[in-house]
């Protein structure tokens, strides 16, 4: 009986992890239809603040306590949040670059993308609406 409960718990945990797919979204009017992981990394690390068509990209982040943020950076860059924060501390205090604007909720991120043609954000797929376009799915 105990083993069944344990197996059930394991299945539940893994099924919730699998369902928590993270999507990278852009404004519906953005002509970009898909992006590579490398392009997303470059935009979110400030190396190249543009989409592949040359249009400026405005990346949107989530607040530090967000699990989606930790997962997004771990999967894309391989870095922990402390490493990402350290990386951005290096760049932002040079006065040359600003880190992505961090919003408190994923709904706010979706809303920001809807209202800003150059915005790009990442969200849990449960927050996806028809008003935005998915350009990348993170394999967790």
């Amino acid at each position: 009986m105990n083993i069944r409960i344990l197996i059930g718990l394991i299945c539940f945990v893994f099924s919730s992890v699998a369902s928590a797919e993270i999507l990278v979204i852009v404004n519906k009017n953005n002509p970009i239809s898909s992006m590579s992981k490398q392009e997303i990394i470059y935009i979110y690390t400030g190396r190249l603040m543009a989409f592949s068509n040359g249009e400026q990209a405005q990346p949107i982040d989530l607040y530090d306590g967000s699990q989606e943020k930790a997962t997004f950076y771990k999967i894309t860059t391989g870095k922990r949040l402390s490493q990402i924060n350290s990386y951005w501390a290096k760049l932002s205090f040079t006065g040359r670059l600003k880190p992505p604007l961090a919003l408190e909720t994923q709904q706010a991120a979706v809303e920001y993308v809807v209202n800003n043609a150059n915005a790009i954000a990442y969200i849990d797929e449960k927050y996806l609406t028809d008003d935005v376009k998915v350009v990348f799915r993170l394999d967790s």
């Binding site: 924060n85 350290s86 990386y87 501390a89 290096k90 760049l91 205090f93 040079t94 006065g95 040359r96």
Partner: peptide, 10 residues
């Protein structure tokens, strides 16, 4: 050069 003052970045 321009980040050496920031202890947290190193």
């Amino acid at each position: 050069s321009d980040s050496r003052l920031i202890g947290y970045s190193n």
